[in-house]
Design a protein around this nucleic acid. Sequence first.
DNA 1: GGATAATGTAGTAATTTTATAAAAATAATG
DNA 2: CATTATTTTTATAAAATTACTACATTATCC
Lengths: 290, 290
Amino acid sequence: MAANHAHRDDNLLEDIQSRLDSLNKSERKVAEAILRDPSAATRYSIAALARAADVSEPTVNRFCRGFSATGFPDFKIRLAQSIATGTPYVGQNVEPDDTVAEFADKIMLSTIASLDKARQSLDPKALGTVIDYLIQAKQINFFGMGGSASVALDAQHKFFRFNIPVTSYDDALMQRMVAAGAQVGDVIVLISYTGRTKEAVEIAKVARSNGATVIGITNPESPLAECCTAVLGVTAPEDTEVYMPMSSRIIHLTVIDILATGVTLKRGKDFLSHLKKIKESLKATRYPLE
Amino acid sequence: MAANHAHRDDNLLEDIQSRLDSLNKSERKVAEAILRDPSAATRYSIAALARAADVSEPTVNRFCRGFSATGFPDFKIRLAQSIATGTPYVGQNVEPDDTVAEFADKIMLSTIASLDKARQSLDPKALGTVIDYLIQAKQINFFGMGGSASVALDAQHKFFRFNIPVTSYDDALMQRMVAAGAQVGDVIVLISYTGRTKEAVEIAKVARSNGATVIGITNPESPLAECCTAVLGVTAPEDTEVYMPMSSRIIHLTVIDILATGVTLKRGKDFLSHLKKIKESLKATRYPLE
DNA sequence: GGATAATGTAGTAATTTTATAAAAATAATG
DNA sequence: CATTATTTTTATAAAATTACTACATTATCC
């Protein structure tokens, strides 16, 4: 059931391109034939490719082995993956003269990429701990400022359904007041992109000194992370480009999803009927599905 | 520089998943063997796969042909592409007895999958149109209720930086009032998961009757979509499972990102310095990076 | 119980790989 | 500078693997 990320990083096509100079005459002919039309190459038989490159079949076979494939069929599969993976713009930044289709695609792909990265780096143990804290909470407060305000609001909306008292604040002053009045049994979830907002760090300290459980959804290498009871690390990707959106926001939201799901699961079956009831109650406000 | 989107539409793995029920006993065994570990399947020979599925070789061959491949090798290549294209774990639902690591992974993957699906279905032309509307707007209002409230808030936060007057409302009453007072030149962006919220539909109608431009980020096949000036269609995946989070929310956010980026790009270079200035102004509130 | 669909067996055809030999290229020696 | 030895490269042909087809058998549904 584990991951199947074997080939994510071996971009065969790029490899072929870069090793072109270090190949001998015949093998270069093969490389060129493949590069001429890579996707056609995946449909060729070894004989057909040999003909297209004007070399013999064993040469093609040797060529494949040279790229650490076990043979021609294996090579073809790696090539096919490389073509598909070779999504044009992963990690490419949005350029000023991109068409709408281009930059829309880039944004989507970079969001997907950072989600995938987060998936690999999120610590399930920390998640489990946090879920336990949340279940035992007498009261939950989600704090997020600036860009994280909407994440906090979303979290409130989600956890509201668990009939635990839950609030969210996007205002430093209010947050500070709540932190000051916090008690043992209260859980405060601080959502921060950088983990360097001075206010947030101070609020965390105040809350902890009052005995509250402070959970950080933030950069694990940050001042904020250091003063939390538990941290869910979301490494902040450098936001180099001005017009590159912060996909961390989306990772944060997904983390909220995971927490909410975890709480639901741990609450057990009878709790599901409660959720269903809430859902039903919304039906009256909707147009029916034809 | 053109794209190589050849495979975008034949997502073999998804196909296999969805056709699972319509297969007969032996062919389903093959399908299950493949889905159990798709990337391993690309390395199997027909004999090996037949063994893994406990069927005969011709059955595997027939299975491949059933998915309109010319034969087993062709099928393997299509499978390899499908894996690389993404969506490796198709539609696995969270189960009550999943471990934290398991359901966290499932949520991440299903989010990724739906983003990828959205990427393929989003219409660049519609995006372009909407971006044009937004640039010309005298005033922008983002409306989202319930789960979409946080999306509206996020949008407000993003567009605030463009020094266009921008607001967001999560309250039906306020939305109705704003819609009633809307004028030509105002843009109202309605964010709705289902597109069936009665209130939202009525608000859209009121706003349009006043001459406002009404943009829907919603299900394209919905009452709301029908009464908008322009629609960005985000097909709502069935939220069958109670504890499956709504990934549509995340798609909506990404759409907001795209719109914001589009506006930034169209505004041109001098505008970038304005954005930088805003960013600089936040520095004082932060702890420096070591 | 007969007809139809589904599956497997066994043989055939295809493709790929290996072993080996020829050719070309390079280096070395007289 | 020619000639031979050595190495590298390439191709031919045979062996092995792999995939496919025709047909027989079994299961399934009227």
